[in-house]
Design a protein around this nucleic acid. Structure first.
Length: 628
RNA sequence: GGUCCCGUAGCUCAGCUGGAUAGAGCAUCUACCUUCUAAGUAGACGGUCACAGGUUCGACUCCUGUCGGGAUCACCA
């Protein structure tokens, strides 16, 4: 079980190779300019310029230009002052590179203006194909996420985990990888036995059907019942004079649960039957939650099956001398050379531990998927140490694929009231939260009342899409590594930097495109998007240019998101894009434009923004409505 | 105590391998619906980037230390 309840913080930036195509320039503009720049250095300063030392940055809005080169680092090479250096390079580029229209120099900054034709060429491309779909890398990548316990329902922490895992899977897919999504369900152990004992004792045969409770909620209820009754027993024992620690061990309920665990391991038919029955309830409940979340898995692992794995690998490790035994028979690994500690891998009685089965499960996965090159564990940063140790062990065991292991370590989600604690009842239930955001979307939608022609069914579907967008975007826009604060009010906000804001922009564009079709500016959306673009008779407006630039940056953003496993990068850039588009929309006429060329060009721009936005949101696991 | 993470506007977050006057959203205030969806746009207000040193032509960014917050160091998972 990897996820557990909480949600803490840390950083893990040692990225194994790369999850995206490394060789290709995701930024075509730079691909054109870098060689020219090298050539400039050759001619002007007789210097061989290292590609890696070139840093283009977008020109700040207050200056004229599209790209900026900071020449300060080159002064030693040029042997001239900053202004002269920048001017020399600028003049060379303008002469040699057709798309370099002109340039200006401010202090040590060379601002380059790229020709409109370059941008419109790009726009045509963005309108015609999916610029957020990279060619295949030929790599197969496994992403493990969710991985709950079966003794309690999913909560807010799981939401961040699931949304991250699902989004990362999609990002990697868009970046050209084949992705296998998995989870490992902790369906065995003392925790589920507690629920079982409590249900037997207090349940009176209650089922999801008779109680009307979702299966996972029902089982969770008995987990809580157990805890309550157990605490009462302890208190009684303590009042009777027993020390607390002793009481915790001697409480009859705990003894019963432990006995049940033994019976389970001994394959006791009655215990197994109850176990399967109650787990069945939980899975039905989980599936309903997953469906509403919109997350999916390609393969499920169960700890009841994997917990026996790993012993063989531990034995082999002992043979190789990678591990060692202590006098009591327990098996250890010494990671002090790596700056860590010694870690136990197998108990003195030969039974396995969390670490043991994680070793075995990893081995099994690479056996089952021979083409697998990367395995990403989406697990809270409270387990940073565990994964560090796990990866070191697998490397020590000599598995070459161990280089492709990665822990996507994400930070805890805090509540305004502080940390989420299941024992204190401060957990935010996943189902409740999703219902809440959807209700809120409905409330807001009905206030605006512009959906009169929608059927009830259509409205419900729309509110579902909007509410979940609010929640998902709220959780995904923050850097995964960082601990974040969950503010309920902000999470259901539909304005500003939110998912619904992006959806709204999309819906508005679709409305515009429908109108264009109606007025037969194009006989279909496709032809709207594929018509010729003329710029001979007009220059791109600043608003148009700004939008195109955000589109242009997007492939590089996807590349970055795939490399760093950061959906937040895409979330934030999508927001920047639609914000620029809204600004354009507000001040530049499209359907009202009389010049047909300009109009077509703006429709293409709008269509491209819609297409890219939809795909970007898909990468986040968020849907976009055609109207709202 | 050892190891690791975090500290940017009142609040929540961006800030790319060091580069121009540190950016958004929320909140507060102002303006804009007889023009393509106002779930929108434009603007105002708001900062000793925790603190102190250091490296550098240049530091929110890199290094050291201090303070504050958190995680983890189980024959638990």
């Amino acid at each position: 079980m990897h996820v557990g309840g909480g949600v803490p913080t840390q950083r893990h930036s040692s990225l194994s190779p790369s999850f995206a195509a490394q060789t290709m320039f995701q930024d075509r503009l730079q691909a054109q300019l870098v060689p020219a720049l090298q050539s400039a250095f050759q001619h002007l300063f007789s210097h061989e310029l290292d590609v890696r030392s070139v840093g283009f940055q977008p020109t700040r809005p207050e200056f004229e230009g599209d790209l900026t080169i900071n020449v300060f680092p080159f002064l030693k090479i040029s042997g001239k002052g900053p202004e002269q250096t920048a001017t020399d390079i600028g003049e060379f580029l303008q002469r040699q590179v057709p798309i370099v229209e002109r340039f200006n120099v401010v202090k040590g900054f060379l601002n380059i203006v790229i020709a409109d034709s370059y941008w419109t060429d790009f726009l045509r491309e963005a309108g015609n194909k999916d610029i957020l779909q990279f060619p295949s890398t030929g790599r197969q990548v496994m992403v493990e996420y969710s991985s709950p316990n079966t003794n309690k329902p999913l909560h807010l922490g799981h939401l961040r985990n699931n949304f991250l895992g699902h989004s990362v899977s999609r990002i990697l897919k868009a970046a050209g990888n084949e992705v296998v999504r998995v989870q490992i369900i902790n369906d065995r152990g003392i925790h589920i036995c507690k629920s079982m004992v409590a249900w037997q004792k207090f349940g009176k045969g209650e089922t999801p059907e008779t109680s009307g409770l979702k299966g996972d909620k029902l089982v969770g209820k008995y987990y809580v019942e157990f805890d309550k009754a157990y605490k009462a027993e302890i208190e009684q024992l303590v009042t009777g004079g027993m020390p607390k620690e002793e009481a915790e061990k001697q409480a009859p309920l705990m003894k019963e649960a432990q006995a049940m665990l033994l019976a389970w391991e001994a394959n006791d038919p009655a215990v197994r039957a109850l176990w399967e029955r109650m787990n069945g309830w939980v899975y039905a409940g989980f599936n309903a939650t997953y469906t509403r979340m919109g997350v999916e898995f390609d393969k499920l692992y169960y700890e009841s099956q994997t917990y026996v794995l790993g012993k063989e690998d531990v034995r082999k490790g002992l043979e190789k001398g990678v591990f060692y035994t202590k006098p009591d028979g327990s098996v250890w690994v010494d990671n002090t050379a790596e700056g860590l500690d010694e870690k136990v891998l197998q108990r003195g009685d030969g039974t396995s531990l969390y670490m043991t089965q994680d070793i075995g499960t990893a081995v099994k996965r690479f056996e089952e998927f021979p083409a697998l090159q990367q395995l990403i564990y989406v697990v809270g940063n409270e387990q940073d140490y565990h994964f560090k140790v796990l990866f070191i062990i697998l490397k020590k065991l000599g598995f070459t694929w161990a280089e492709g292991l990665h822990h996507l370590s994400y930070g805890m989600v805090d509540l305004p009231s502080g940390k989420m604690k299941s024992r204190e009842g401060t957990v935010v239930d996943a189902d409740d939260l999703m219902q809440e955001v959807v209700d809120e979307a409905r409330k807001a939608g009905e206030e605006l009342s512009k959906l009169d022609e929608f059927s009830e069914e259509e409205k419900s579907a729309l509110y579902e899409t909007i509410g979940l967008a609010a929640l998902k975007y709220y959780l995904l826009k923050v850097d995964p590594k960082k601990r974040m604060l969950f503010d309920p009010a902000a999470s259901i906000d539909l304005q500003g930097h939110t998912g619904p804001f992006i959806q709204y922009t999309y819906a508005r564009i679709k409305s515009l495109l429908r109108k264009a079709v109606e007025l037969s500016v194009g006989s279909s959306q496709l032809s709207v998007a594929s018509g010729p673009l003329t710029t001979d008779n007009h220059q791109l407006l600043p608003e148009e240019r700004a939008v195109i630039k955000f589109l242009h940056q997007f492939p590089a953003v996807l590349n970055e998101a795939a490399t760093k496993l950061e959906p937040s990068t895409i979330a934030n850039h999508t927001y920047e894009l639609v914000k620029a588009y809204n600004s354009f929309y507000q001040s530049v006429p499209v359907m009202k434009e009389e010049d047909p060329d300009k109009q077509r060009s703006r429709l293409v721009l709008s269509a491209a923004v819609a297409t890219v936005t939809k795909k970007a949101m898909w990468c986040l696991g968020i849907g976009v409505p055609e109207r709202m």
